[in-house]
């Protein structure tokens, strides 16, 4: 493995009509790492992945995947890639084996090499014993596994996974996250998009946080947390509408930012031990009772809140 990046993204722009979906996105993914694009829905993650898959042509900028330009060498890019789309992009009236056989052929596999690889992938995704069933009869989790299996058929150097855990049960989600880590251990580079902070935090070597079509922060989990100076997040629930209290809490010493949603208040603080009593005092002055308190150590959610003033799931 050499040191050249698996993916280099240089100032990508893409608009749909007047909507600027991606505005000057740049990042670099090293070979063999899991790189997450984290952001809320509509942040521009899928548009970025679509450009990197040569499905969309960028208005400006370029990107290189294993050295192949998405502008001038699309076939080179595609041959280096495996893409796991957000949707279950399979033929439901074909069996799992028929699907894998078909997609293997689309990736250029033939004959015994195809048969051997299909058997291997069925083993990897744990569906060898149900390979003759039509995909349409599978559960959501099983479909997701076949969806991922298709992208592994030609042993690509780079895999894009676009929100692969949306809408599935916790057990299938766990299996998918484990399989992503396994892919990394096999030397593959994974570009992973998600709006689940926990997933990104758990599996990623490097994270780029996206919002409104821009990368607003990038680094390892530790580097990102440092951006907010190690601030903790305190989440409180009041017995009355939070709007009355929030104005005062913003001025409390040690509070960096405050967001509120009905009775629930979320505050980024430098030292929760010092700040918490002040918040109780303030609440008492406004005749409000704090009914629950939760202190969270600094995480990506806090980073996003710090950078955008909004929660990641807003």
């Amino acid at each position: 493995m050499n040191n050249s990046p698996a993916i280099e993204v240089l100032n990508l722009h893409r608009s749909f009509g007047g909507n600027k979906a991606v505005q000057g996105v740049s990042f670099e993914v090293k070979q063999g790492e899991i790189f997450s694009l984290l952001g809320p829905n509509g942040a521009g993650k899928t548009t970025t992945i679509s450009m990197l898959s040569c499905l969309l042509r960028p208005d400006e900028g370029d990107a290189r995947v294993m050295g192949h330009s998405i502008r001038s060498d699309q076939m080179g890019v595609k041959s280096a890639l495996g893409v796991v789309p957000q949707e279950i992009a399979l033929y439901e009236d074909l069996t799992a084996r028929e699907n894998l056989n078909f997609w293997g052929k689309m990736y250029g596999l033939r004959g015994s090499a195809l048969k051997i690889r299909v058997d291997e992938v069925l083993e990897i995704i744990g569906l060898s014993d149900r390979a003759r069933e039509r995909v349409g009869k599978y559960s959501g989790g099983m479909k997701r596994r076949v969806n991922i299996g298709v992208a592994l058929l030609h042993k690509p150097k780079v895999i894009y996974m676009d929100e692969p855990t949306v809408g599935i049960d916790p057990q299938s989600r766990r299996n998918i996250l484990d399989s992503v880590i396994a892919l990394k251990n096999q030397g593959m580079t994974v570009l992973y998009t998600t709006h689940y902070m926990e997933e990104s935090q758990e599996i990623s070597d490097h994270i780029a946080i996206m919002d409104h079509g821009k990368v607003i922060a990038s680094g390892t989990h530790e580097e990102l947390v440092k951006l907010i100076g190690g601030q903790a997040r305190i989440e409180l629930t009041l017995n009355t509408n939070a709007e009355n209290v929030i104005a005062e809490w913003k001025t409390v010493e040690g509070v960096d930012s405050v967001t509120a949603e009905e009775e629930k208040i979320s505050a980024l603080v430098n030292d929760s031990n010092l700040v918490l009593p002040r918040l109780f005092e303030s609440a008492t002055r406004h005749s409000a009772r704090i009914t629950s308190v939760e202190i969270r150590e600094p995480n990506l959610e806090s980073v996003f809140l710090h950078l955008t003033g909004r929660a990641l799931r807003d």
Partner: peptide, 16 residues
């Protein structure tokens, strides 16, 4: 169905 399920888009990410 191929277009709706985005299978066509997936086909377009291969070298076909």
């Amino acid at each position: 169905v191929e277009r709706k399920s985005r299978t066509l888009q997936r086909l377009l990410t291969t070298s076909v």
